[in-house]
């Protein structure tokens, strides 16, 4: 246990060591450490932001999908409804057309029958006159008895 020149040497060595650590070791270690810390914090923040954005995008995509599905449903509904309408319309048009055609045919039949009746009536009149003339063996003056014959024909 003694004090000697070693004390002074130790103090000098210590001073140099402090200077060296302060100048070349500490800042070169702490600087990059702080820089890395900052970068890690940034990375974590970016990851958090990315996650949040992904969540939002997923929600947006889901809502778009839902909307599209709804719209598709509406469109299919509409299409079905209009198809039904068209079918109904076509059916009613066809029915009407059929009825019209039937009515026209019936009218035509009525007209043809009337015309035939008229012809028949006239033919019956002339046949009756011819028969009467044969019976009387003399010719009936057609013009003289026209009024009579017409009245007769109308009665048939």
């Amino acid at each position: 246990m003694h004090i000697n020149l070693t004390l002074v040497i130790q103090m000098a060595v210590f001073a140099v060591l402090i200077w060296f650590t302060m100048k070349f070791v500490w800042p070169m270690l702490l600087g990059p450490m702080q820089e890395r810390e900052r970068r890690i914090a940034q990375g974590l923040a970016a990851a958090g932001k990315g996650e949040e954005e992904l969540k939002q995008a997923r929600e947006g995509a889901e809502s778009i999908l839902r909307e599209a599905r709804e719209r598709a449903g509406v469109i299919v509904d509409q299409a079905q409804r209009s198809a039904n309408e068209i079918l109904e319309q076509a059916r009613s048009t066809a029915t009407q057309e059929g009825q019209r055609l039937v009515a026209a045919a019936q009218q035509q039949i009525g007209l043809d029958a009337a015309r035939a009746k008229e012809q028949l009536r006239q033919q019956v009149g002339s046949i009756a006159v011819a028969a009467a003339a044969k019976l009387l063996e003399r010719e009936i003056d057609a013009r003289a008895h026209e009024a009579l014959l017409n009245e007769f024909a109308a009665q048939l």
Partner: peptide, 24 residues
């Protein structure tokens, strides 16, 4: 004597400098 500034402990100086170099 207790205090004598002409004496040097070679071993202390040697090992402390060696350890200082090792650390630094």
């Amino acid at each position: 004597s207790l205090v004598n500034f002409t004496v040097i402990d070679y071993d202390t100086v040697f090992f402390s400098v060696l350890l200082a170099v090792l650390f630094a």
